[in-house]
């Protein structure tokens, strides 16, 4: 399906192709991320979701096509300028052994610092605000190694928030969390979008979570976008079968009223 960029968005790709080694992962993708929305990318394993996210955040250099951020091709910015506009929380993030929460989150201020500069009041305010927004302020002096999975994930999100970027991309932020922590994290993200004037994009595995929290879905298969739109528009039994090869019924979620996918 050919999707045209219909409105000028902060972040959009134009016929973007991405390779991993010599294999093409994403083919000719033109997609616009709605400003101030919560966009979720869904699709089967290996469909190129994470690669698209990495492409949008200039972690993978395009083989063809371009990514535009705030009216300019993303590669025309310095990496520092991009890092002040667009944040990414990758799956591979690792905490140095023995580091404390406050120090880890403060590393999110890297884009605002120079080689020999000192810690500013602005840095301090941003870090405390990020800790507060993620309810991790009371963990500030704890070692990251000693935290539970849910706490640790909130700390990583605090790091990304301390970066204070208008656009924030998250690669499978709920992986390895139990159901309660998943919901807690998604509520946090929705809250951030609503109160913080932010544009969020996440890769999520759970379809029903995606339907409940996203206001825009991008459905990918085999490195291409099959369809995109609001959950209510695109989550239909025929679309889910085309996407995952899974026969299902779609009912209304009794709590949120969003589509709920029930496999047959």
């Amino acid at each position: 399906m050919n999707i045209h960029v219909s409105y000028p968005s902060r972040l959009y790709s134009d016929k973007l192709s991405l390779d991993c080694g010599s294999t093409r992962i994403c083919h000719d993708i033109s997609v616009a991320i709605p400003d101030r929305g919560f966009t979720v990318i869904i699709g089967p394993n290996g469909c190129g979701k994470s690669t698209l996210l990495r492409g949008l955040s200039r972690l993978v250099r395009p083989s063809a096509g371009k990514v535009h951020l705030d009216g300019k091709v993303i590669s025309d910015y310095s990496t520092r300028e991009v890092a002040q506009r667009l944040g990414l929380l990758p799956q591979s993030a690792q905490a140095p052994e023995g580091i404390r929460v406050g120090e880890l989150v403060s590393r999110g201020r890297f884009p605002y610092r120079r080689a020999f500069s000192t810690w500013s009041d602005e840095d301090e305010r941003a870090v405390l605000a990020a800790l507060q927004a993620t309810s991790t302020l009371e963990l500030i002096d704890r070692e990251v190694d000693t935290l539970s999975g849910g706490q640790r994930q909130r700390v990583w999100i605090a790091l990304a928030l301390a970066q204070e970027t208008p656009v924030l991309l998250l690669d499978e932020p709920t992986t390895f969390l139990d159901i309660a922590h998943q919901i807690e994290l998604l509520n946090l993200l929705r809250n951030l979008k609503e109160t913080g004037n932010r544009t969020l994009v996440a890769v999520l595995h759970d379809l029903n979570h995606a339907c409940r929290y996203a206001d825009h879905l991008i459905a990918m298969r085999d490195g291409r976008i099959l369809f995109e739109g609001s959950p209510a528009e695109i989550i239909t039994p025929s679309n889910i079968e085309a996407l995952f090869g899974l026969r299902c019924v779609v009912i209304s979620d009794p709590v949120s009223g969003t589509p709920l996918v029930v496999p047959r």
Binding site: P90, S92, P96, P111
Partner: peptide, 13 residues
């Protein structure tokens, strides 16, 4: 030290 991906996202090369 946070991993190459996050380092790049933070603007370190």
């Amino acid at each position: 030290a946070l991993g190459d991906d996050l380092a790049l996202a933070l603007g370190a090369q």
